[in-house]
């Protein structure tokens, strides 16, 4: 494999199930995607499609009764040095020393709710310095200086003073910046941003996205950006993964996905975006039906009950798998199986 082609993270056929008393919820059924170094991968899908559980599986912080039951999560490293070329995160102990060393150091997380993602009874500085001391060999005083510098880098005014403040004293935007500072504290190679702008107002959203992009350019880190907002994906992502009910239904470069969507689900999603060209006072197209109840997963292709191009006799009996539909584009749909 060429070095340039080598992803830094490769998720293959990931399955994460929740074993409840009422039955098994297949939150992630068959997710596959690669994250290229220095690029942004957007994961998009409706609520409950398994986006968040997928990234929690990567960090190995899925809460019980959830468990990874299959697939691989390969984290690639430079073969140089004493560390192996890649490690399968699903094989590590969730709270073992290896995983703790990866979490927060190589892979960091920015979470969707800045209101509640910071402890209400600890200062920003306390949590930021804690993260620095966990993964870097520095003294407490040096950590403090690094912390102030980080807050400065994410655009928080008078950073030294903010270290002593509590999350409830900051605005939503500043809180999310502080969260990003904590995530960046150990120079991660991969930043996972789980709906980082959902709870913010539109202007602040734009600022946070700009910040993420400029930090990515400076540091060359890869980003997994999870969102249900296709506008954000179009603006930020290099590659896109479309998920439905825990499955990757389509993936490819952002331009291909937006201009030549192949899977009927991706097509329906894109049609439901309001456009400046659409006629006023006409209802937006919607995807018929709603996401099925997790205990009542459809057979075959999970999208078939809502699919406008449902092939009777095929879609409800067999499950399609990801297959190439373009140069770098793949879709999981029977429409393209014969081609």
């Amino acid at each position: 494999m060429e070095n340039e082609e080598q992803p830094i993270l490769s998720v293959r056929n990931l399955k994460t199930f929740f074993f409840m008393d009422e039955g098994t919820v297949r939150a992630v059924e068959d997710a596959s995607f690669d994250v290229e170094p220095g690029k942004t991968l957007g994961i998009v899908g409706e609520s409950g499609c398994g986006k968040s559980v997928t990234v929690r599986s990567i960090l190995r912080i899925v809460e019980r009764p959830g468990r990874i039951v299959g697939g691989q999560i390969l984290l690639y490293r430079n073969a140089a040095g004493d560390r192996p070329g890649h490690v399968d995160l699903t094989q590590l102990e969730a709270n073992g020393p290896e995983m703790l060393a990866i979490r927060g150091d190589e892979i960091a997380l920015v979470f969707q709710e800045p209101m509640t993602s910071l402890s209400p009874v600890h200062t920003i500085g306390n949590q930021l310095i804690e993260a620095i001391l966990l993964h870097r060999q520095v003294s407490r005083r040096e950590a403090r200086e690094i912390a102030a510098e980080l807050l400065h880098q994410v655009g928080i005014p008078r950073p030294a003073g903010r270290l002593e403040e509590y999350s409830f004293q900051l605005s939503g935007g500043l809180r999310q910046r502080a969260m990003i500072a904590i995530a960046l504290s150990c120079d991660p190679r991969l930043l996972i941003a789980d709906e980082p702008t959902t709870a913010l107002d539109v202007t602040t959203q734009g600022q946070i996205l700009d910040l993420l992009r400029s930090l990515q350019e400076e540091r060359g880190m890869a980003i997994i950006l999870i969102t249900h907002d296709l506008g954000v994906i179009a603006e930020m992502a290099d590659d896109v993964v479309v998920m439905y009910l825990g499955q990757t239904v389509e993936k490819g470069p952002v331009d291909d996905i937006f201009h030549a969507p192949k899977h009927p689900y991706t097509q329906s999603l894109l049609q439901s975006i309001p456009s400046i060209h659409s006629r006023p006072r006409v209802n937006l197209p919607t995807i018929s039906g709603s996401v099925p109840h997790p205990y009542n997963r459809p057979s075959g292709c999970p999208f078939h009950p809502r699919c406008p191009e449902y092939i009777v006799g095929t879609c409800e009996t067999r499950a399609p798998s990801l297959a190439p539909v373009g140069e770098r584009q793949e879709a999981s749909c029977f429409l393209y199986e014969d081609a």
Binding site: R56, I102, G104, E113, T116, S119
Partner: peptide, 11 residues
């Protein structure tokens, strides 16, 4: 969420 983020920090 603040517990999840603390965990994600590698604590």
């Amino acid at each position: 969420p603040y517990v999840v983020t603390a965990r994600a920090r590698g604590l």
